[in-house]
């Protein structure tokens, strides 16, 4: 097995260990905790009053923020390799990245101007 696979095997092992700990602690808890079912306990808790209607509603603004986020998150993925190799890319790389960031900032400025960032 090569070093590359070993490195990512460690990720899988750690995930498994976390799941195992979760299961073990809940299993141990099952032996210790009481269990006295009453129908009132299983009603959704909404500050004392009985819940009305099923699911709640939420602001559509969250969706726009998610879209903006995707753009800038992908940008970050491009910036990291550039940051590692900046010494070899030198002035050329710096100018290129400046243009790239400016274009994206333009996008942010447009969204700002259009009132996307205002919470109305």
């Amino acid at each position: 097995m090569t070093e590359f696979y070993r490195q990512y095997l460690a990720v899988a092992v750690l995930m498994g260990a976390a799941a195992l700990m979760f299961g073990a602690m809940l299993g141990a808890g099952r032996l210790l905790r009481p269990n006295r079912p009453q129908p009132e306990k299983y009603v959704s808790y909404e500050a004392g009053s009985d819940p009305v209607g099923g699911w709640g509603q939420s602001n559509v603004r969250y969706y726009v923020y998610a879209l903006l986020f995707v753009i800038f998150d992908v940008e970050a993925v491009f910036i990291f390799p550039w940051a590692v190799n900046l010494k070899t890319l030198d002035t050329f790389g710096l100018v290129e990245m400046t243009i790239f960031i400016l274009v994206l900032t333009l996008g942010l400025a447009y969204a700002w101007r259009k009132g996307v960032l205002r919470w109305a």
Partner: peptide
């Protein structure tokens, strides 16, 4: 440790 495990219906 001694809390009941309640899951809403």
């Amino acid at each position: 440790l001694q809390k009941e495990d309640v899951m809403p219906a």
